[in-house]
Write a protein that binds this DNA or RNA. Structure first.
Lengths: 336, 336
DNA sequence: CTGAAAGCGCTTACAG
DNA sequence: CTGAAAGCGCTTACAG
């Protein structure tokens, strides 16, 4: 890279000290207006571009926050990113955005890279398989604040922002019951996912509130593959008293379940009502879809996580920060 | 941020010079094995984490490339990102990923930020409205290489990697003609988009090769909004000789066009064949879809752009780099 | 094989 | 109001 203009070059040309030039460009009040003008004029003329990396180094701040996302293809992560971006921009911070691709090794190398590069803070959604949190504890050791989003960290040493899964599941289940359904199944995600359990909680509360006993045979666990969902659907439909409504963990499952009905039980297609989490953009083009979906406000998740992070970054005191756990409310969107 | 361990701390403790410590950790061959071991041992014990930003500053390289994307919600950009990531990772480079949100002001501030932060290279897909390229010329002035992807830059001062739009359009149109269609419409994107014209080129070539005269009334221009597409469809369907097949600029248009037929011309729904660009993940759940779609390999676009970029970054010679223009071939995917 | 020294481009407390 | 000086944490050409 060609060498750029430096403060020194400007100072030499103007017969001033580097300090004066630096102060002029930073609008330091101790500099006379005339000097400031002369400096700025030449800087302009010479297209001086400050070397931020030198400045960061000197100030021992990178003005950069790290962001680890499992996969950018999941559009809800992108919404969270946008929320984070909004705040970071206002704080004049850069974001170094990375994907772990659900790979814990990659996650580890990213975390180390972030520390080596001395990011001022980190926001992370861990991989599906992350259980060991020592990786992130490292950040605390060196004094870099960390906020987790969407995916729950394995312990309560970290602040965590996500949507209110339990509340959403309650609304989705309650909606089906209010519609008159008594046999409401739940096709859940892996029990290893804390979110999956939180939604199960909400499902149970809705049943309980409406005095419907929990029937274990109506609970199915899947891994999100089409095959597993089909297996769950076969089992449900072969019950002597099959469900008349199904609440699923997320859109993708609903779509596979509906595709299954279309193929094997076309007569039930317009009878069984679905609700779920998510709100896919292509929904309007589908002929068969859930009657209602829980919409998660991931933009707000990202925004609030960033707010928390900057509170920590800008906190001058040396005291450890209080761990916060924020749950953004969910809305139930009824599809016509 | 708490102060971390530095080379100096280690040097002091071991009664060595900072140079020796630095060289030991960098496996410099002039250092004796025993010294190297002692240094590494203490570094390990003390959890020494090198300060990359100091190193970057010293070496006058950021080991970071900038990436400007209009919008992460567009999944094809994410594929390009993954291709870029692959190469950057191999080169041990970080990526600073930003979104312009199709806003030229934001684009400008990002570009300036990138220069101030002295990225070693830049890959950019410009906004829909970017016509002024002086912004990017700036990079050349300071010697930072730039590669454009997906969205064509306004002039030929920049290397550019994208898919072969003309070829894709040719295949999509030719497929319809081979299927027996003689009246093939083209619903194109804005004529201001170079890509739109490239596809028009391919459409025309396919007609020409099959000795079908171009009929201007079958060409419609839309801005991707549902309303515009409806208007185009109304005009097409009211022709005395309406099209029997339609090639559209992209999936989104096809979906709106099909939705229109479903509503207004249900009898034509299964008669009119569509082809287009794109390959939406939800396609399998749709009842009505294009008969074939041009699949664009954006991963490869990103990968090759990154390869070009690193050629430029690692090029020691001072000579200006040759401008390259790479077009990745497209495949036509036939939907059953 | 090891170390002293210079320097990357800035900022800032301090002296004048 | 301006400037000399120190220093952020590293790397590297050079001397010994």
């Amino acid at each position: 890279m060609k060498k750029g203009i430096t403060l020194k070059d400007i100072a030499r040309k103007l017969n001033m000290s580097v300090s004066t030039v630096s102060k002029s460009l930073n609008n330091d009040s101790t500099i006379s207006a005339i000097t400031r003008e002369r400096v700025k004029e030449l800087a302009d003329k010479w297209n001086y571009i400050a070397n931020e990396s030198a400045r960061h180094f000197k100030l021992n701040k990178s003005f950069t926050i790290g962001l680890i996302i499992p996969d950018l293809q999941d559009h809800f992560f992108v919404k969270a990113i946008n929320g984070i971006e909004k705040i970071a921009e206002a704080e004049n911070y850069n974001i170094i955005l990375t994907q772990s691709h659900e790979n814990t090794c990659k996650e580890e190398s990213i975390v180390n890279m972030m520390i080596r590069n001395r990011v001022d803070g980190l926001i992370a959604a861990v991989t599906k398989n992350t259980i060991d949190m020592t990786l992130f504890e490292k950040f605390r050791t060196v004094g870099i604040p960390v906020i987790h989003i969407v995916r729950e960290p394995g312990n309560d040493h970290f602040s965590y922002v996500s949507v209110n899964n339990e509340e959403g599941a309650f609304k989705a289940t309650n909606f089906l019951i209010r519609k008159g359904h008594k046999r409401v199944a739940y096709i859940m995600g892996p029990k290893t996912m804390p979110i999956s359990l939180a939604r199960f909680e909400g499902y149970q509360k809705a049943l309980h509130k409406n005095r419907i006993p929990l029937d274990e045979v109506l609970i199915k666990e899947v891994d999100f593959s089409e095959k597993e969902t089909e297996k769950a659907m076969i089992a449900l439909m072969q019950l002597k008293s099959p469900p008349t409504a199904i609440f699923t963990f997320k859109n993708d499952i609903t779509l596979d379940a509906i595709a299954f009905l279309k193929k094997k039980y076309p007569d039930r297609l317009n009878v069984i009502d679905f609700t779920d989490f998510g709100n896919l953009p292509l929904f309007k083009y589908l002929d068969h879809k859930p009657v209602a979906s829980v919409e998660e406000d991931f933009y707000e998740v990202g925004r609030q996580a960033a707010v928390l992070l900057f509170e920590a970054i800008n906190d001058k005191s040396d005291s450890d920060l209080t761990i916060k756990n924020i749950k953004i409310p969910c809305r139930l969107i009824v599809n016509r």
